[in-house]
Write a protein that binds this DNA or RNA. Structure first.
Lengths: 129, 129, 129, 129
DNA sequence: GTGGTCTAGACCACG
DNA sequence: GTGGTCTAGACCACA
């Protein structure tokens, strides 16, 4: 588990954690059923408060990425992450919209934008789909 | 100018304003040199605080989307928006990364993702770039 | 707003809060669109920590009972609470099951149980449905 | 005895055990005087800690569902479960109250709720009371 | 040991 | 003023 936080960022720490764990899952670095560190150990590892880690975990649990197993502790959802439904897709579009609008204003061509997306997809899918 | 705010969104109002104005520029609905309403009038039009509109305008000015003249008022940057440089692009990648990671986890294929991007590009470029 | 907490109960305070607010909504004591007290004021009113109130509010928000309006603060969901779907109903059954099993063991007849439910329904629906 | 635990549930394992044994008694699957497995054997059977089984048994004993003899081992109370008294009934009401309040908010009609209760009663009373 | 709850006090972003 | 975030330290229930 490589967690790299930027304490200067305006992105809250717990969200950075959430995103990095999701990226770990996407990269298949974290496999379904795999255990995550306990809130306390992860917190002390990366030098933040356990409540901050807990908040990240609760978010991930809420979104189906992980679950709290009473014996194994925190584990990546063994059934895989729930597929995107309509609301996820509209959320995705909502998030994408301002990025694309600004890209257009700044003269980033559709081709360049798509290439960037493709290369990011590749980043995660080195380890098969 | 059609401004549509969602007061129940997680996205701060001033950022919603910023994004919608940028989208207006991308859509060429707002043309370089075109005037924007004054802080006061826009604020009262959409029923929000002066400070909020001002904050949005300051952000847009900071990023080169608009100019604020003491006399002429607020106008869309007549020289167009500064092109993306390396830092913009790395910022774009940073924003895109978690969206793509989550999409992969949720089984949104690269094809589907790219189609979404393309359709958004089309949304803005009905009026040619 | 009448909040009555039992600090001796084994039910967590934030859950007692959640339940009492839901009961307030069911009783139509709290109407859609109506504002709830801020976390700080409610917390000091009932003598608990603001984080505890916040946790209750976050739960209620998550479940669609309330929403955080950027101008009005915390308000009862003006569109009403989302209707029960299959998962809510199976959750309800799961919660009901042990209550009914124990009632059977303790010789509470089906008639008596149903009467209790009916009287509780009446408790809430004095103010029309 | 069919014990089915969900280690990912919010409900503590010992309580799941308690509830399932109570359901077994309600269903008359477990008859008064019938023996239950020893703490050790049940624990190893379902792969949980001794303490957890013990805690469940202590709860059941406390509530009069079972007796724990030093020699005969654990048996379902041969005299049947003590009938509900006023405190049990007020407890039942207290548990039912939030379920009904939420049901009302979520537009589950009294009829639908009562039907659910009836069908649950039937589930247990296939073997007559 | 784990996660869950609660408290207390701090700073910041927002409007 | 609001809610959001983060910290710190405490106790308890669970396994």
């Amino acid at each position: 588990m490589f967690i790299n936080l930027d304490f200067e960022s305006d992105e809250p720490i717990y969200l950075q954690l959430v995103h990095q764990i999701i990226e770990g899952i996407a990269r298949r670095d974290l496999r379904p059923g795999e255990a995550l560190p306990s809130v306390r150990s992860l917190a002390s590892d990366i030098g933040i408060n356990l409540h901050t880690v807990n908040k990240a975990y609760q978010h991930l649990k809420q979104d189906g990425f992980i679950l709290i197993h009473r014996q194994k502790g925190v584990v990546i959802n063994p059934d895989g992450v729930p597929k995107a439904d309509a609301s996820h897709k509209s959320q995705l579009e909502k998030n994408l919209r301002p990025l694309i609008a600004e890209s257009i204003c700044r003269d980033i061509s559709e081709e360049e934008f798509l290439m960037l997306c493709k290369s990011l997809y590749k980043t995660y899918q080195g380890g098969r789909s």
